[in-house]
Nucleic acid binder design. Sequence first.
DNA 1: CTGAAAGCGCTTACAG
DNA 2: CTGAAAGCGCTTACAG
Lengths: 343, 343
Amino acid sequence: MGIKQIAELANVSIGTVDRVIHKRPGVSKKTEIKVLKIIKEVGYTKNTTASRLKLASSKKIKIAVLLPKTKDRWNYWKLPKEGITKALLELKELGVLADYFDFSDSNTFKSKSEEIFKLDYNAIITVAFFKEESNNLLSKASKRELPIIFLDTEISLDKNAFFIRQNSEQAGKVAGKLLHGLLGNTANYLIINKRNDQGVHVNNLQRETGFITFIKETKYKGQINSNSFFLDTSFTIPDNLLEWFKSPKPKGIFITNSKSHIVINELKKHQIKNVFIVGFDLNKENIAYLKSGEINFLINQKPELQGYLAVKKIFNRIVKEDNTNLNQNIPIEIIIKENLTTS
Amino acid sequence: MGIKQIAELANVSIGTVDRVIHKRPGVSKKTEIKVLKIIKEVGYTKNTTASRLKLASSKKIKIAVLLPKTKDRWNYWKLPKEGITKALLELKELGVLADYFDFSDSNTFKSKSEEIFKLDYNAIITVAFFKEESNNLLSKASKRELPIIFLDTEISLDKNAFFIRQNSEQAGKVAGKLLHGLLGNTANYLIINKRNDQGVHVNNLQRETGFITFIKETKYKGQINSNSFFLDTSFTIPDNLLEWFKSPKPKGIFITNSKSHIVINELKKHQIKNVFIVGFDLNKENIAYLKSGEINFLINQKPELQGYLAVKKIFNRIVKEDNTNLNQNIPIEIIIKENLTTS
DNA sequence: CTGAAAGCGCTTACAG
DNA sequence: CTGAAAGCGCTTACAG
């Protein structure tokens, strides 16, 4: 049942039906009502494939992707891009494309988002690292009805924003459950956050909160020791912390970020063993330590999936006029040596 | 870059280009070579969306789905169908449809697959429960170049078959790792398989093998006790097994099938506590026990994803002429109370 | 306010 | 062996 049959039933031309469907001006109220009635009666839905066939060349859907600058060889922020690339490949024929922008601090985030606004995009995929700047972006975008999807991290913003991310507090609880399951109520726990000049990333803090919340709800009676370090290659364990490792009690470390391998490198240097470790992210170094048994659990944030879903959801919103919100909770995937897949 | 530009460059009509692309007869060797050369030079790829637009009405892609009969209110075999339905919804506009068939034993499997062969399908999605009958199906299908995807269970078959399933032996290893992590080297383990009149399902056996293999590779020095029961609602724990539960040692149960809740109902009847349990499948009853803490881990086979991927892969093979094999390893998803999502 | 026509990229039946 | 034309369902610029 297509536009043509609707037109026949309504005794109008397909052009008129099209105008009604797209709420374009130039249709008398009377014919509009007549056409809408028939559309409803026959349960017509637009064939979006056919629709995009025409528009794929004339009216591209352009997505601006603004993510942190990737400097390392391996960088977390390449992963959402892989998912975005995959989605674009699937949607290429339907006229969807993306341009990439990057930022390294709040200033460049601001300038790049202004640049994006000058160009003519249909949607933005970015991350909400900077509250004020993200709010600015949101308020500008809402005036143009430009959908924005924030990946990775959720912070509270003024307007209704869309987030595709893992619930970090819940992920912290999962980490707590896993370590507590292995180590029980008497162990000591060490939380290691990553800090930079701006402080500790909100994801790390949310994970820490979740971890502690979970542990507090058990019959736990050990010590939880929280620390934040610059987890670059020059990281060394401070002396007071070396003391911590000397306790004969069962010991667990919760690393709230992707740098488990940096911590483990240090543990090895000091020949510290018998510590259970839960970390995040499947980078090459972490995977090697998971395989060697030095990391017990890794939590996967599925960054590729986040990017992939962002593009797909933008497409569905714009093309299929799917007005459900674009939020998406990413499952907290528990990875051990035995269920690690390299597919 | 489309068929039209290719035609211009080759000084032929678009009809001729189309004939070359689809290897249809009626093209002189000379023009064929000329057209193929240009196609290669410009890196032309068919716009499958446009292609399907025409074919969606005239040349449907018809998939036969042959799965076990669902009798219970909740039934595992409804789940792959949900995934299939989701995929069909996405591909509806492109002219993909499925018909459902069911079987209850090897005889009905055979008769239904014969029925499917009489009708004119482009692909089959089913399960390989019966070796001989599955081999028959495969050999008939290969004559017609009809792709067959087997879900859920992998068995060794004569011809190259396609499987979308979790590696059951590996899943058993994951279960072993999880229980061993909680209980250590001195615990006793109980394996509970589900049996029916035909014996124990191959999935259960593969999982058991994986579990035992894993445990044997650790410094384990407890007892592993393997059992098979009809795990229907009339299940009761036999007396000799009640003895097993009286041991003061740490105890773990590995239920190699979806019936953890049946086992737990019995444990509760006998007021047996302090047993750690790993099971399979996110049915309503299992989820309730996961939430109450009576199940520690559930492994998800993602049956919806299996069905979804099967349809998508069939579509890509037929439409995009993607000739990579259709096998797909489903990740071994570890579910605990804290990462259970109802989305 | 409305319709007829051309076109998106591909497929197919028909004509020569 | 090859081409011209109609059509898949929708969109759009043009004419009236």
